[in-house]
Design a protein around this nucleic acid. Sequence first.
DNA 1: ATAGATGCAAATGGTTTGCAGAGCT
DNA 2: AGCTCTGCAAACCATTTGCATCTAT
Lengths: 153, 153
Amino acid sequence: MKPPQEVLADYLARQNLKMTAQRRLILDVFLREKNHLSAEELYAKIKTQDPSVGQATVYRTLKLLTEARLAEEVNFADGVLRYEPLYGIEHHDHLICEGCGKNIEIMDPVIERRQEELARKHGFVLSRHKMNLYGLCEKCRKKNKAPKKTTPG
Amino acid sequence: MKPPQEVLADYLARQNLKMTAQRRLILDVFLREKNHLSAEELYAKIKTQDPSVGQATVYRTLKLLTEARLAEEVNFADGVLRYEPLYGIEHHDHLICEGCGKNIEIMDPVIERRQEELARKHGFVLSRHKMNLYGLCEKCRKKNKAPKKTTPG
DNA sequence: ATAGATGCAAATGGTTTGCAGAGCT
DNA sequence: AGCTCTGCAAACCATTTGCATCTAT
């Protein structure tokens, strides 16, 4: 499998775009992350490595990485677009705790297969899907079970 | 089953909020829609009925309807938040054509069950989920199969 | 009477864009 | 050399908020 830098280089070449120091840096920092970063968060990390990089470049490069299939947009419904590395990563979905924000990556072949079948039944051919499951994790359920404190005293 | 107006009235009462002409109107117009409207789109429709209603009120009321479980936010990843009526409507997911934007409501018990199992395995109890399948519908696949036109003449 | 609702307009905040200068190829 | 990139700041645009006024309860 081609290293991600090469994937990007190839994509850029194919599109007649150019490889730059910024793009290399952004890709590097981005891939090092295991969390789902927003553009702003990534921008902050980038700045610690090279304060001269502009925020617009981070936004633009994330779009580029998405097109190059090195990143994927994920939307946790909190108004901010996040990105997750896609390089060498198996497809997965998300199980999100509404209490603490914890986020577990899940993947179920049965669901995947049914999705395809379902789509086919409607004449669709799928290119991708997003599935987010929202609920409460064990810890947060226990936390909430505790009796509500009235103002003490 | 309680009529939606009553559902809203009950919710408002429970929260010590008030029923107003605007809220009634917005609920009415909203429920009459079968499409997934953005706040702006709903605002436009509302204005034809009563031009005096402010846009902020539409935004605020949609949030209210969501809390009252009469509406549900849906996010098709195009930067705009849409709402769909939830009153008396079975839960369903979405199959979206990336070619023409067509949107089919789907629901599969097998997937629903697996989701619960999957969540339980991780110690979660689910409150809700969103699943969007993206692909191309039959028409759009045929359209795209046609050889690319070069500038004619 | 009074807490809450409304409309307006201004503010917000994530994201995009125009532009002049810099950098790849 | 020429087309693309970059950083900056301004622009965008959906959504939210402050406030004076109005209204349901």
